[in-house]
Each structure stands twice: as structure tokens, then as C-alpha cells.
Design a binder for these strands. Sequence first.
DNA 1: AATTATAGTTGACATCGTCAACCGAATGGA
DNA 2: TCCATTCGGTTGACGATGTCAACTATAATT
Lengths: 142, 142
Amino acid sequence: MGKATISDISRSLIEIVWYFGPKGLNGECCKNLTMPEFIALDKISTTTNCAVQDVGYSLGFTKSGATRIVNRLEKKGYVQKIKSHEDARICCVEITKSGERVLSSANSRYVEQFHTIAAKMSDHSLTDTVEVLKAMAKALKG
Amino acid sequence: MGKATISDISRSLIEIVWYFGPKGLNGECCKNLTMPEFIALDKISTTTNCAVQDVGYSLGFTKSGATRIVNRLEKKGYVQKIKSHEDARICCVEITKSGERVLSSANSRYVEQFHTIAAKMSDHSLTDTVEVLKAMAKALKG
DNA sequence: AATTATAGTTGACATCGTCAACCGAATGGA
DNA sequence: TCCATTCGGTTGACGATGTCAACTATAATT
């Protein structure tokens, strides 16, 4: 038996990340929406005049990768690209009605998954758990 | 401006997952080790007579995918495959010295990243945060 | 002994993101 | 004003990664 080389916190974090990440949840947050698409769609829905590159920034993709993921979302009918009036180089990406439905549905499913897990954490209240995760997410940006 | 369609907890969880996941941390937990490889290596290092499929199970991969990731690790010199004596169909995957070094190094880097974030969470002690994450990881398996 | 189940491998394939080269539009200094 | 540069976006070629289905070999069952 090899000794357990990695620490508890690493393993816990990785398990969480793997479970809620791109490969977990059957590889899709929602029917027809991968995790990066989920993130992109959220970014688009909360950003006015969202340029293609803005999507790339929030995902850590190159501008090429940004174009590709936006195109995929467009093909699925969840967003549309509109040339900016102020600057003709920029494409403003906007979420469609269909996109909003899918985003909302993905969110529900994601939250539901989280609640299922949180319900099993007998030593921690849902509120506490949520607070820690929110604080952690906030710390990522600081 | 589209209304923010998704809930805080979804967004927080996703941000964490994205940051500590396959795409975050420069796409590699450690030089020359992707996130699935990290997980596989940990599984291998803590499992006696680890079959190729066992690696697949812990990642949620098909047996084909398991073969491929083990082969990749073997090519990098981090594991070796040994035919089982009891059952000639089974390949026991074992971590090498080099593999242990890399795993340990990836772990350090991962823990360090976590501590950097945790240090910024002024409202939550490191201990509390760790406890919540451990409990959450445990709940995933229950 | 013949059938069936299991572990693993492999070829063909789809997905996805990067890199580098490119286009067109904006901008700024001579 | 003209030209060089910068900037947003797109595209072709590519590499990485995982699945599916077909296959081999070994074990277990009947």
C-alpha cells in the first residue's frame, strides 16, 4: 500500500471540484449545456454590450476560444451577435429568450444538486455552508 | 441588461470549481500533470493492486478512457503496469518513485493555492473553511 | 467442453481549446 | 491627412482528451 501522499484538504477540494465540475453531473449542467457554456451564458446575461472577448476573459480563454464558444451558443439559439454601433469591430453578444430558459433551468439543476449534498452535511447548516462558499468565491477575486 | 438569472450559490460554486478545476491554475495542477491525472495518481497511490478500471471508476471514465489515462501516466514514467498473479486479465497499476514526487509536488501546490485563498476570507477561519469542505466532500460519497 | 462474463486495448471519431495568420475598423502621431 | 499601430474578431491547422464499438485474452459458469 502506498502511503496516502496527498493531504485531506487537497482531496476534499478535488472531489468537490470534480463532482460539480465539467466532468461531473453527467458532463452537463443541464441538457445541451456544458459547464463553460453555462458560465459563458451567465456572463452574457449579466453584461450589457457584452463583447466576445468579455466571455473569453471570464473563462480564461483566448479570444479564439471565445469566438468558438459564442458561436456554439449562437448555433444552439441561446445567444445572438449584434455589431456595435459605437465601434464596428465589436460584436455585442446578447442572450435570447431560449437562452434565458436554458440558463434558468441549468441553475435550478445545479442548485438542486448542491442542496442534495448540503442536506447530507449533518454537522453544518445550509446557511453556514453557503456562507463559506460565497466567502471563498469572493476571495478568489480579491 | 438581462436580469441576473442564476443564484448566488450557483455562481459561487461555479467560480470555485472553475478556479480549482481542470481549466484553472493554468490548466495544470503541477508541471506535467493535468487534473484528471492528479486524481488518477492519487487513486493509484492509495489503492493496493489498483486495476486499470479502478482508475476509471474514480474519475467516472469508461474503461477505454481509463486505459488511456493510465497509459499517459506510464509514458511519463509516473506509474507502471504489472500483470496480476491471481488473475491474468488484470493489470495492477503502481505508482513509481518519480510519480510519488510529482504527486507530492502537485499536492503542495494545490494546498498552497487553497491557503492563499483561505487567507483572504476574513470572516472565516482556516479551520472552519477546511471543515466545511471536508464535510462536503464526505457528503458526496454518502 | 462450451458458453458467458470480465479486464484491457485499439481504431475511428467528436469535442474543444490554442496558436498563428489574417481581415477590417479605430486611433494616434508625423 | 496619411500611415503605422492597435484592437476585436474569425479561421485553418493542430493537439489533447474521452467515448463507442469491436476485438483479444483470461476466468468463471453450466
